[in-house]
C-alpha cells in the first residue's frame, strides 16, 4: 500500500516540473504568477501525500501553514502587479 503514495508523489513532482516550464517561458508577469500559484497548490498536495507515506502527521501541519502563507504571497504579488503597492 505504501508504494501507491510514493507513486503519487512522483507524479505530482513531474507535474510541478511541467508547470515550471510555464514559469520560465512567461510571457508576461501574470502568467508567471498563475504558474507559481499552481506550484504552491501542488506542493501542498505533495506534502499531504508525503505525510502518509512517511507516517509523519506533522507534515500536514506544515502543509496548512504553507497553504495560508503562499496565499498571502500570491495576494501581495497580485497587489504589486495591479499597481496598488509601490515597491
Amino acid at each position: 500500500m505504501t508504494e501507491v503514495w510514493f507513486v503519487a508523489v512522483a507524479v505530482l513532482g513531474a507535474l510541478i516540473v511541467l508547470t515550471l516550464v510555464r514559469l520560465l517561458i512567461g510571457p508576461t508577469a501574470p502568467d508567471r504568477v498563475v504558474a507559481l500559484d499552481t506550484v504552491n497548490t501542488l506542493t501542498v498536495a505533495s506534502m499531504i501525500v508525503l505525510s502518509v507515506a512517511y507516517e509523519q502527521t506533522v507534515f500536514v501541519d506544515v502543509a496548512i501553514v504553507y497553504a495560508l502563507l503562499s496565499f498571502v504571497g500570491t495576494l501581495y504579488i497580485a497587489k504589486y502587479l495591479g499597481g496598488e503597492i509601490s515597491a
Binding site: L68, S70, G83
Partner: peptide, 23 residues
C-alpha cells in the same frame, strides 16, 4: 488543510485576475 486550500485558491485566482486586468 483542504478547507484552507479551497478558500484561498479561489480568492487568490480572483486577485491575480484583477491584477492582470489592472496592469
Amino acid at each position: 488543510a483542504l478547507l484552507a486550500l479551497a478558500f484561498t485558491n479561489a480568492t487568490g485566482a480572483h486577485a491575480i485576475a484583477r491584477a492582470a486586468h489592472r496592469s
